[in-house]
Design a protein around this nucleic acid. Structure first.
Lengths: 193, 193
DNA sequence: CTGAAAATAGCACGACCGTGCGTTAATGTC
DNA sequence: GACATTAACGCACGGTCGTGCTATTTTCAG
């Protein structure tokens, strides 16, 4: 790999770390340059514009999410075990310092048209679809009822994850973890054959 | 009411409308002044600083939430009916154009210490407590099991609301509404005596 | 080792940021 | 209607923003 590409990745990882705190809009090239110990123009020249820097952050963040959440979950056996797996890894992902960049981006760009909004929506859709597909393996394995609406399951599981994130990271409720699992189990039970 | 207080409220309402799109940090005094057709210093003089403007936005937003979600719900009979009521009004609240300012503030300030963070956390805690207290009326009415953990119910209901917000506003899934109610009913059933 | 190519730095730009001061205009009281 | 108070404005400040251009340094192939 060329040195340029190497620095670019390094810049992006720092940028993501910063954006988790300030958001993608709050991220500034000046402070990013200071953080990676480069000149402003040195950083800037790796990206055509700030918007493309933000987009690159989201893309790299997606890669990390796949590595840390999806791939490990797919290594588990099909069915509820895999569903439990992804929930577990997802919860770990949410506990990253500064929070989840997807969640930040979603609230930042939910009603602001543009490439960032579009990418964010596409990415979230893919995520939810994959979640539903994992739920579908549980239907295949006859662990969930045959007529289960797997998107219903995905929406409910995602709700458990989101409220866990709120209770745990934002409100610092110590029981958030236990309650999330209790909610998950209750939810799964209600979809059993 | 003095004229000053009147304009102050008008400014805040416009500010909230703008902050729903740009976030509380993205809100700028210049654009706010243009939106209310005043000079920058004219707007500024109503608040000691930008931070206190942001704080005032959150306070006013809380008032609106109480008016539009809590008070109507408390007018309903105690128990599950009231719980359904608050979910219904809450969902309407979430569908405001630009989204919910609480959610935006929560992701903006979750890991940034300061008065805005503190106010946000306090406010969210109050919200969740009230939700739990409404669930407690359902226990009193023997519509939910006697040994119900009402905070568990609150966390689960909040999850339904959050995922509804995501599916509906961000991903524009047309079935989000139906699925949210289905999730709510399933959830309530699992807590019945 | 040399020279082309890539990476980084330096610097300047116009725009907008939050903030404050002094002044003018509007308001409300007697 | 006179007058104190309040509200709003004009203007300027130092700073930072994103973005380019030019020069210099570093990388890498032959």
């Amino acid at each position: 790999m060329r040195k340029g590409e190497l620095t670019r990745q390094a810049i992006l990882d720092i940028a993501i770390r910063m954006a988790r705190y300030s958001g993608l809009s709050g991220l500034t090239i000046g402070s990013l340059a200071a953080a990676v110990d480069m000149s402003k123009s040195g950083v800037y020249s790796h990206f055509k514009s700030k918007e493309s820097l933000q987009l690159a952050c989201m893309e790299r963040n997606s890669e990390h999410f796949i590595d840390e959440v999806f791939r490990p979950a797919l290594a588990k056996p099909r069915g509820i075990t895999r569903l439990q797996g992804i929930v577990e890894y997802w919860m770990v992902w949410y506990s990253h310092p500064g929070g989840c960049l997807f969640l930040a981006a979603a609230t930042e760009f939910d009603d602001l048209p543009g490439p960032l909004h579009d990418y964010m929506v596409t990415e979230q859709r893919t995520l939810l679809d994959s979640l539903a597909r994992i739920a579908a393996t549980a239907v295949d394995e006859r662990e969930l009822a045959e007529d289960t609406d797997v998107f219903q399951v995905a929406q409910e599981v995602f709700g458990v994850l989101l409220s866990y994130n709120w209770m745990s990271r934002i409100l610092s409720y110590p029981d958030a973890d236990d309650r999330a699992w209790s909610a998950f189990n209750r939810l799964i039970d209600s979809h059993r054959p």
